[in-house]
């Protein structure tokens, strides 16, 4: 369905220097540096997959999405999506994809949401009957009924994002690119968006590639992650394996009734301790989380337990160390 082979892309970036004198000089002459945004990116995605595309800021995620959606032409490499080369035959190709840029709106700001949808229907030449069916499905699953007639500028961010995703699906694309779809959303909206992505993937078989900084998005949606850092592909595979490999540590925070006995458990280390509260770090290769909780409950009267996995940022930092970049 999606196949990238050795995609490279570099940008010419003007050097910025500080100081008035340098700034004046830059008016007339600018030094440029070549930044390699993507180095030899190769991966393929099968129909019906949901793939999480992750990496820190500036890693090249957006550039990859721009190349895959036909906006940018890469310097080298091949890309074949549904038999098309995205940057050739742009008009024919983009009918088959939906793109959501989380930070930018594709809706018309001052008019009711439904008007934007109607116009998109005309832009994509969607037949009337098909449009009605799709729209009803979208309204139902995304709970858009009450907000369909409100101008976009009056919507909350969560409501707007639901409309953005709906807007990118009006033409029934087979592939959906989501660039940070949950950025800035509250917990409830995040869950709604995730649930919806899952629904369209299962019911319509839409292939989804999403970028995000929220590891919970990935855990809720994607079986597979592709990790990119400084333009290079670092990891491509199951999320569990990634965590096993690099993130075998979990943090457990417990509150309990006053107890001055030590809670030392083999395989864990105490980060913080007080008679009513403790924070432990668990090495899951040595001891299972459930075993730690069992042992803890024998030692103290537990009031509250919170378990946190290692954040993806930490995993990535570890990966960087391993790849020395």
């Amino acid at each position: 369905m999606i196949k990238l082979e050795g995609i490279t892309k570099s940008f010419k970036v003007a050097k910025r220097s500080t100081g008035l004198r340098q700034a004046t000089k830059a008016l007339f002459y600018r030094e440029h540096t070549i930044v390699e945004a993507l180095k030899d990116i190769t991966f393929s995605i099968e129909p019906g997959e949901i793939v999480g595309y992750i990496g820190p800021n500036g890693a090249g995620k957006s550039t990859t999405i721009k190349i895959m959606s036909g906006i940018l032409v890469p310097d080298g490499g091949n890309c074949s999506i549904m038999g098309y080369t995205p940057w050739k035959n742009r008009v024919d190709y983009v009918k088959n994809i939906g793109v959501v840029f989380g930070q930018r709106s594709q809706l018309w700001w001052d008019v009711p949401v439904i008007d934007s949808f109607e116009l998109l229907k005309d832009i994509y030449n969607v037949p009337e009957q098909e449009y009605k069916t799709t729209l009803n499905l979208l309204i139902e699953t995304l709970e858009l009924k009450e907000i369909m007639n409100s101008p976009v500028r009056q919507l909350s961010l969560g409501q707007r994002m639901r409309c953005e995703i709906a807007a990118s699906l009006i033409h029934n694309p087979q592939i959906l690119f989501l660039d940070e779809p949950t950025i800035g959303l509250d917990a409830v909206s995040k869950i709604a968006v995730r649930q919806f992505i899952k629904t369209i993937n299962q019911e319509k078989g839409v292939t989804v590639l999403l970028t995000t900084h929220d590891m919970n998005d990935i855990e809720a949606l994607a079986n597979r992650v592709i990790l990119i850092g400084k333009g290079s592909l670092l990891y491509d595979g199951k999320i569990e394996e990634l965590k096993k490999r690099f993130g075998s540590h979990k943090t457990i925070t417990v509150d309990y009734r006053k107890n001055i006995n030590s809670i030392d458990i083999p395989g864990t280390s105490i980060i913080h301790w007080s008679p009513e509260h403790a924070v432990l770090s668990i090495d899951t290769e040595k001891i299972l989380t459930s075993e730690v909780i069992t042992e803890l409950s024998q030692k103290v009267d537990l009031l509250d337990v919170t378990i946190e996995s290692q954040p993806i940022e930490d995993v990535i930092i570890q990966l960087y160390k391993e790849f020395q970049i």
């Binding site: 721009k66 906006i71 742009r90 008009v91 983009v94 840029f101 930018r104 594709q106 832009i123 994509y124």
Partner: peptide, 14 residues
Amino acid sequence: IKGDFDRVLVRPRS
């Protein structure tokens, strides 16, 4: 400047 030209490019019209 707003980056909305990217949106133009992902729509199947001239």
